[in-house]
Design a binder for these strands. Sequence first.
DNA 1: TCGCTGTACCAAAGCGCTTTGGATTTTGCT
DNA 2: AGCAAAATCCAAAGCGCTTTGGTACAGCGA
Lengths: 343, 343
Amino acid sequence: MNLKQLSQKLGLSQTTVSRALNGYPEVNEATRLRVERAAAQYHYRPSTRAKGLATGKALAIGHVIPISSKHEMVNPIFGDFIAGAGETYARHGYEMILCTADDGQEEQVYRGLKARRAVDGVVVHGPRLDDSRIRLLHDIGLPFVVHGRSSGATLPYAWLDVNNRHAFQRATDFLLDLGHLRIGLINGMECMDFAHRRRDGYTIAMLARGVPVDPSIMRSSEMTEDFGYQSTRDMLALGDPPTALLCASLISALGARRAVEEAGLVMGRDVSIITHDDDLSYLKNGGDIPIFTATRSSVRAAGARLAEILLGGIADPDLPHQNVLLEAELMVGRSTGPAPRKD
Amino acid sequence: MNLKQLSQKLGLSQTTVSRALNGYPEVNEATRLRVERAAAQYHYRPSTRAKGLATGKALAIGHVIPISSKHEMVNPIFGDFIAGAGETYARHGYEMILCTADDGQEEQVYRGLKARRAVDGVVVHGPRLDDSRIRLLHDIGLPFVVHGRSSGATLPYAWLDVNNRHAFQRATDFLLDLGHLRIGLINGMECMDFAHRRRDGYTIAMLARGVPVDPSIMRSSEMTEDFGYQSTRDMLALGDPPTALLCASLISALGARRAVEEAGLVMGRDVSIITHDDDLSYLKNGGDIPIFTATRSSVRAAGARLAEILLGGIADPDLPHQNVLLEAELMVGRSTGPAPRKD
DNA sequence: TCGCTGTACCAAAGCGCTTTGGATTTTGCT
DNA sequence: AGCAAAATCCAAAGCGCTTTGGTACAGCGA
């Protein structure tokens, strides 16, 4: 069923039917009701493509998933983020379109999206330090919101981020308060902006207390379980091993715990662990009492909020760039305790 | 830059430019070359919407992500699956569009996709037993491929699945061969087809050896870390605890290991664990030697393969429904060993 | 030379919608 | 009653592409 057929069935012009359905004022209420009922009855829905063509909008938002061809790594938070954003898009009549982009060809993908007029805006995932995508999207005139931030970017841009620096600063302080002095950092890849900021927070807190920052207990890589395990095992084998660990993700924290237990140590007693927790639906941090003490911030909520920002910016391009900084909660779980006394 | 502008710049008609770009024969090779060069120079890309309107195709594939509003659970394999499929779509000039659908409104979402003519086909994720979506999509005439299968479906349909029954049968046999008799099952939700089949495989193997199937060591729920932990803890507290566990996912296996170790037992010695491993990029099963003995099958590869099948079916609707059954590998890791001798 | 067959190109219609610029009828007011 | 304004509705153009149904011209054999 298309507009023409529907309007013929109603004995009205396409104009009137279209206006009735789109809430324009110049149509009799009785007529509008009749139209709406008929539309529902025949399951009429305007074709997105035709509507898009006619209005000059794409009625779609693009998400470009960076996929490192080296590591073939897909960001595990992606599913939850999308779930949050998707609901918002649907409510506003937008489609969500996904593209994957290997390392080198990211620029191509964004340009293609723009040239094909496939989207009205995009979400930038996984920003790196001084991320080139910001300049690129600015230049080609494609509205965007960054999930995270990009230190070093000179242009103003819209973003939504968790206050990673503050979160890790608080977490480090929490451990310092418990008497820990050897605090290991198991970070994400520090070319990623969020990891860089977390490290900053960690360093700031350590230095503020005059505790030395020791590179030998700071690791940085993709946040896999195995990386958490290896890093922890290595660090525990040091002459002066850490009594506490700061992990960048629940997944690497699971690996860290494995190494701790494998070494015959008890988490929360011999080694304390704090992790960041993205509150992923498939990786809950325990039940009532969290397993891990964690800095928590829901990625899914972030997705929903970010989508609102993007759509708002598209609806009114003159609006100033929105910047939203979310604070993470510090949830105390069972993985932390006072630093073990040296005997 | 659009077709009209490009054709004016070239002093050709839109027809000729369009045909040149789409590889039709009735255009001079020299002209075609000139057109292609100009298109590249001006970054011309046909508008997907316009092209779709003109051809009557949507040039897009839909993925509907079921999101249980009860559990707010997003399938963790989703990111990797999408990554596999996305590359295939891009290569064929298709967009991938995502919708989220809460429990009740799935039918609405599919109908909407069809009515808006937003997609040429869809991928059905997470099929349940006798899944109603198969009938629905058949009825509304939307091409689809199921990732998994649906026991009880009477209509023929295209699917790509892992041989879950065989995989779990082999895994169970493997444990039985090691002398285990009390083998616990930590399954996914058994309304899901894959979980049902895995249970079947387990049961078949047990019965074939005359080993009793004991419901008290069989659990079924969403595959979270916590579920793996709780289930294992409970089972280990039984009078006659299992000496081996079969897990449905690496995530719940991590939870199972936690419970095993917390009980002061050693995985691979006191309790053997076999898990299914979807080979997710962010959750590798260890390094060189797998942590867990596992039935492995790459979800990402499945995504790529399934996308090919769907596009093939769309290109030639008369083709019979393709059915692909992938065998999982049984990878031996460090989590399994002979059944402990009773003293 | 004429007709005929390709080859290479083009004008215009059409995909399903929105929107512009009227046209017609009603209403409100004097 | 008479007339402007408001209320409703409509025909047709246009969004950017593909495709149908041509035309024009060169080349060829008779």
